[in-house]
Design a protein around this nucleic acid. Structure first.
Lengths: 172, 172
DNA sequence: TAATCACTGGACATCATGTCCAGGCAATGC
DNA sequence: GCATTGCCTGGACATGATGTCCAGTGATTA
């Protein structure tokens, strides 16, 4: 779904100060509450906004160590490995990829020593041939979405397929 | 900060149905509203909950392609490279790591073709020696936190330093 | 020209929020 | 044993936000 500048500013507002609510957002955007409400509903319905889940910091939970593991999988064992990794709480996300490895997963651990335990548990599975781990030292750019939203909303997005004007359609 | 079972269940509730609010959460947990409120305030104050920002789906914004790029950096160019990558909207996060590469970043793009443009922009910088990119095909385990919260809250967490009982202290 | 659509500005009842309070209860420290 | 501390309860209150209507206006499209 394409978003316009108003959608973009609304998303920015909510990203930076999630607690403000629809009413306050409409005030800051200079539009009627109904408009902000409608935009928000639309963003949620179209899947741009998946939800407003709490952003939990693993470090504050006692898991200050983050690592990325590249896994090489035995042919045909993909499904089993996925199921295995899904049972490990320290596996925060898992992707299957092209390239040297077959899978990439993000891990957390209580310490560098604990990371060894996590890795052992992750790779201690028959379908996994090899694993290489990269420990995260710094996180100069934490997961962010605002710059992308800004670009998507500005309409001058590079790589964008040239389209008609930005008039909203009733159903898309 | 250590969390107990009540904190854990509260986080789970909020993660799964963020819209319910404190009052409804307290009802489901079977505790007084003041308790849920206090727990939530404490989780926010201690940094376990960073916020309640909207969870935006890049794919719905028109960026359905995700990739991870491992970058090798020229000695002493780290700061410049970080600053450079921070200006690229398609760079959703950036980590400096140990291991083969020096940095790992998550990218999104409008298409496989567009990914080429993004990569060119990312590596088109003097301090970057080499880059290897892995395109994400599937995402069997999307970014999740609940299993980790459950483990942290259960107290029987592996790798946990043995501690006293789970009585809460006044200030920590 | 008629129809469609988004936005406005207002209305309403309901609900959640932030913020107090007094009391009970369990664990801690002396 | 006793006082202290800290958490939880259950209640109160005013304020504010929410969900949901509506009629009117302006602009675009067929």
């Amino acid at each position: 779904m394409a978003i316009d500048r108003l959608d973009g500013r609304l998303l920015e507002l909510l990203a930076e100060e999630p607690r403000i609510g629809v009413l306050e957002a409409s005030r800051r955007l200079g539009v009627a509450r109904g408009t902000a409400q409608a935009r928000l509903d639309r963003l949620k319905a179209s899947g741009v906004i998946r939800g407003f889940g709490p952003d939990v910091d693993p470090a504050a939970l006692g898991y200050p160590v983050t690592a990325f593991a590249t896994l090489e999988i035995k042919q045909g064992q993909g499904a089993d490995v996925r199921a295995h990794l899904a049972t490990v709480p320290e596996v925060l996300e898992l992707h299957t990829t092209t390239g040297h490895g077959d899978m990439l997963c993000r891990l957390v651990a209580r310490s560098n020593a604990d990371l060894q335990r996590v890795i052992d548990r992750v790779v201690g599975f028959d379908g996994i041939v090899r694993a290489s781990t990269a420990i995260v030292m710094e996180n100069p750019v934490p997961l962010r979405i605002v710059p992308l939203v800004r670009q998507a909303a500005s309409g001058d997005a590079p790589g964008e397929h040239p389209g008609p004007t930005e008039r909203r359609k009733g159903t898309e």
